[in-house]
């Protein structure tokens, strides 16, 4: 185990709240570390919530307009092509957000780490990287901005197959499922 790395501020979770806290900390002249367990930054807002649902909504409306036009101008849209197009567009938008936000963090001199964090004591956090390597961080202040996940009530076991939650619904292959979400 390497010696702990010291920061003024360590933030756990790189969603909208974590990012803003990190940027404010950096602007105040603090040395900031931001730890995110997912590969991309942005949290549920970018990957599971706001951005995907709005992107799907806009794309679904666009396809719906195309469908109406197809009746008038006698061209055909394959049902499978529609859902693929929606999901493909979603990937592009999410990727663009990831690039934008990474640049913003780099510009502000924030150190971004990819791993799962846990507290060892009130001044030390240990992070496990995805390859299993461990690293410790010490700081005067910590911000826990880990957000939320869909609840999984025991009486309705969410298996992402027969019972979906708002996360798995976003990658559905069923066109009908996209509209209520959007």
């Amino acid at each position: 185990m390497s010696t702990p790395t010291a920061y003024d501020l360590v933030i756990i979770g790189a969603g909208p709240a974590g990012q803003k806290a990190a940027i404010q900390g950096a602007k105040a002249g603090k040395r900031v570390a931001l730890i995110e367990r997912e590969r991309g930054i942005g949290g549920s807002c970018v990957y599971r919530g706001t951005i995907p649902s709005k992107t799907l909504r806009e794309s679904a409306l666009h396809i719906s307009r195309l469908r109406r036009a197809s009746e008038a101008f006698e061209f055909h849209i394959k049902p499978d092509a529609e859902i693929s197009a929606l999901l493909s567009r979603l990937e592009e938008v999410v990727h663009a957000h990831d690039i934008f936000m990474s640049k913003q963090l780099r510009r502000n001199g924030i150190s971004l780490f990819h791993g799962r964090a846990r507290f060892l004591n009130d001044r030390t956090v240990e992070m496990q990287a995805v390859d299993g390597a461990r690293q410790q961080f010490t700081a005067e202040y910590f911000v826990i901005a880990t957000g939320s996940r869909p609840r999984n009530p025991p009486e309705f076991p969410v298996d992402h197959e027969h019972i979906l939650d708002s996360d798995s619904l976003l990658s559905t292959s069923s066109y009908e499922a996209v509209f209520p979400l959007a």
């Binding site: 599971r48 298996d159 992402h160 197959e161 939650d165 996360d167 798995s168 976003l170 990658s171 559905t172 292959s173």
Partner: peptide
Amino acid sequence: GKEVARMRRVNVET
């Protein structure tokens, strides 16, 4: 594939 999809909370059927 189904088990990994469940773990990543994405579409199991696909």
